[in-house]
């Protein structure tokens, strides 16, 4: 579970402003001026990319930008789970534990992460680098078990590969995204079992 929105919590900053007013303008330009409230979602995303999470003042700021009462922004922000409404680490580790991932060993992945980062699910590391969350299905079941770290999926995990990914991230490197076992897309491990011609044409799977 993600932490809930606490508008009066101590960690809420006093003020917020978008670093790039141009981006705000560009977003709002996508919608007719009397439908500016459509810009709430992209602006929330912009704020999250800027700060890592969305504070109450940021929401108020967005409300003003789209000419809506703040509550309308709160409604949207609290509805969608991809908005972080409390501070998170630089890397948000979202581990899937829904049935397919669990069948393929997600429990071991969690244990490995918890031991490696020395935190429990729902906590952040002291250096502010990682936050670990357990989430429901992210739709990459074919390559289970999987984890989403910020915008990227890392699939076909083992206890070793997840630790090496985390180590690489902590060191500022960019580990390869997608399948960690060099699987192409979501193809069966034994090679293509359907669409064989197309696979051959594309030069994958052999």
């Amino acid at each position: 579970m993600k932490p809930k929105f606490e508008p009066n919590a101590d960690y809420q900053p006093k003020d917020f402003s978008f670093k790039s007013q141009k981006k705000v303008k560009d977003i709002l330009a996508n919608y007719p001026s009397n439908q500016a409230r459509s810009g709430i979602m992209p602006l929330l995303d912009l704020a999250q990319r800027q700060e890592g999470w969305i504070s109450r003042v940021a929401m108020d700021c967005i409300a003003e930008a789209v000419g809506q009462p703040p509550i309308k922004v709160y409604e949207v922000a609290t509805f969608y789970t991809m908005y972080n409404l409390a501070p998170v680490g630089k890397y948000l580790v979202q581990l899937c534990t829904t049935t397919p991932c669990w069948l393929c060993g997600s429990a071991a992945i969690i244990e490995a992460v918890e031991t490696h980062l020395e935190i429990k699910v729902g906590e952040s590391t002291k250096d502010g680098l990682f936050t670990l969350l357990e989430v429901e299905c992210l739709g990459a079941c074919v390559n289970a078990p999987m984890v989403q770290i910020n915008d990227n999926y890392y699939e076909d995990l083992t206890a070793e590969s997840i630790v090496s990914i985390l180590t690489a991230l902590a060191a500022g490197k960019k580990p390869s995204i997608g399948s960690q076992t060099k699987r192409v897309g979501s193809m069966a491990l034994s090679g293509p079992t359907s669409l064989e011609k197309q696979a051959k044409k594309a030069g994958v799977g052999s």
Partner: peptide, 21 residues
């Protein structure tokens, strides 16, 4: 014309509120 109340959160956690009391 005073939008103070809203429907917050989702699913089982959904509630009516002003959020900032």
């Amino acid at each position: 014309g005073t939008a103070d109340l809203g429907l917050l959160n989702r699913g089982e956690d959904v509630e009516i509120g002003t959020f900032v009391e």
